[in-house]
C-alpha cells in the first residue's frame, strides 16, 4: 500500500532546509549588477568638468545630497539651537523636503490603489456573476483600458481642481480597469469541476461563490491587483507631475528640473524604485506565499518561483 506512494514529506522539508541555509553572498547576488552600473556611472561622472559636473554628479555627490536632503532642516536647526529636544529633532527631520515628497506619494498611492482594488473587485464580480453587468461593463472597459490614464489629467484638473483629489482620481481610475478585468476573468474561469464538486454536495449558489469561486479565482485576482498597482504607480507619478501639485516625489522631480538639481532627481527616482520593490515585498509576496503558492495554484498559472 505505502510503497508506490512514498509520502512527500521528507523531500519538501529537505528543500526548505536548503533554502534557509543559502549563504549570504548568494542572497546578495541581485545587488551586484547595481554596483557595476554605479561604478560605471562614477567613472563617467568623474570625467565631467566644471558645469558639466553639476549636470552629471558623481555617485558620492548624490549620496551626499541625499543625506543633506534628509537631514538638512535638522542640522540647520541644531546649528541655531544646540539644545533642541528629541521631539523637536524628530519634528525637524520631518520637515525635510524629500521626506515630505515621499510621505505625500506614500499615502496617496496606496490609498488610491485601495479604492481601485475594492471598486475593481466589486465590478469584476458583478461582471462575472451577472450577464447584464457583463454586457454593460465589457464594452466600456475594453474602450477605456487602452487609453493611458494620464491623458485624462487635464479634464480631471478642470473638473476637480489642483490637489490630491485629482491625483487620487486618476490613479484609482488607472488601477481600477485592469483589476476589474482580472477579477471578471478569474471568476469566469474557475475550474468547473470544483463547482460541480460543491454542487454535488448540495452547496447553494451563494455558498459556492463564497467557498469555491472566490478562493478559486484568487490567482487571477492577485495578478490583476499586481497589474493594477503597476498602473496606479505609473499613472500616479505622472498625474503628480501634470496636476501641478506641490508635494509628491515626481512633483519634486519636475520642480528639480527647474534648478538642474540632478542629484535630487536621482534620489527621488531611487526612492520611487525602492517603493515599488517594498510594495511588492510587503504586500504581494506575503499574500501569495500564504495563499496561492501554498496551495500550489501558481504552477498552474505558469509562474516561476520568486527567490530574488
Amino acid at each position: 500500500m505505502q510503497t508506490s506512494e512514498a509520502p512527500p514529506v521528507p523531500q519538501s522539508m529537505d528543500e526548505k532546509k536548503k533554502e534557509v541555509r543559502s549563504p549570504i553572498w548568494v542572497k546578495l547576488r541581485p545587488i551586484y549588477p547595481f554596483i557595476v552600473i554605479l561604478a560605471i556611472w562614477q567613472v563617467a561622472a568623474m570625467q565631467a568638468q566644471g558645469n558639466q559636473g553639476r549636470l552629471f554628479p558623481t555617485v558620492d555627490a548624490i549620496v551626499y545630497r541625499a543625506w543633506e536632503l534628509v537631514t538638512g532642516p535638522l542640522f540647520r536647526a541644531l546649528a541655531e539651537n544646540p539644545n533642541l529636544g528629541l521631539f523637536d529633532q524628530i519634528w525637524k527631520l520631518g520637515e525635510s523636503p524629500i521626506l515630505l515628497h515621499t510621505l505625500n506619494t506614500a499615502w496617496r498611492l496606496p490609498f488610491s490603489f485601495f479604492i481601485a482594488a475594492i471598486v475593481g473587485t466589486v465590478v469584476g464580480i458583478l461582471m462575472g456573476r451577472f450577464a447584464f453587468w457583463e454586457s454593460f461593463f465589457v464594452p466600456l472597459l475594453s474602450v477605456l483600458l487602452p487609453i493611458p490614464a494620464i491623458a485624462w489629467t487635464p479634464i480631471v484638473v478642470i473638473w476637480s481642481g489642483i490637489g490630491d483629489q485629482t491625483v487620487i482620481v486618476i490613479t484609482a481610475f488607472a488601477s481600477f480597469l485592469p483589476i476589474a478585468m482580472a477579477v471578471w476573468t478569474g471568476v469566469k474561469t474557475v475550474n468547473p469541476v470544483w463547482i460541480r464538486a460543491a454542487q454535488s454536495m448540495n452547496a447553494d449558489k451563494m455558498t459556492i461563490f463564497r467557498t469555491v469561486v472566490l478562493p478559486g479565482s484568487l490567482p487571477m485576482i492577485l495578478s490583476g491587483m499586481r497589474i493594477g498597482l503597476a498602473r496606479a504607480w505609473r499613472a500616479g507619478v505622472g498625474a503628480e507631475a501634470f496636476a501641478g501639485i506641490r508635494w509628491g516625489l515626481s512633483a519634486g522631480i519636475f520642480d528639480a528640473q527647474e534648478y538642474l538639481d540632478i542629484a535630487f532627481m536621482m534620489v527621488a527616482l531611487g526612492i520611487l524604485g525602492l517603493f515599488g520593490f517594498v510594495l511588492e515585498k510587503v504586500l504581494f509576496q506575503p499574500i501569495e506565499s500564504r495563499t496561492v503558492i501554498r496551495w500550489g495554484m501558481m504552477e498552474a498559472m505558469g509562474a516561476q518561483d520568486k527567490k530574488v
Partner: peptide, 21 residues
C-alpha cells in the same frame, strides 16, 4: 457523494478541510 475522474479537490483546503466541506 460524487468522485470525479479529474482531481476535484479544493486546492485551498487541506485534506481534512476538503473532507469537511
Amino acid at each position: 457523494g460524487v468522485v470525479f475522474q479529474e482531481y476535484a479537490l479544493f486546492p485551498w483546503r487541506t485534506a481534512r478541510q476538503n473532507v469537511e466541506y
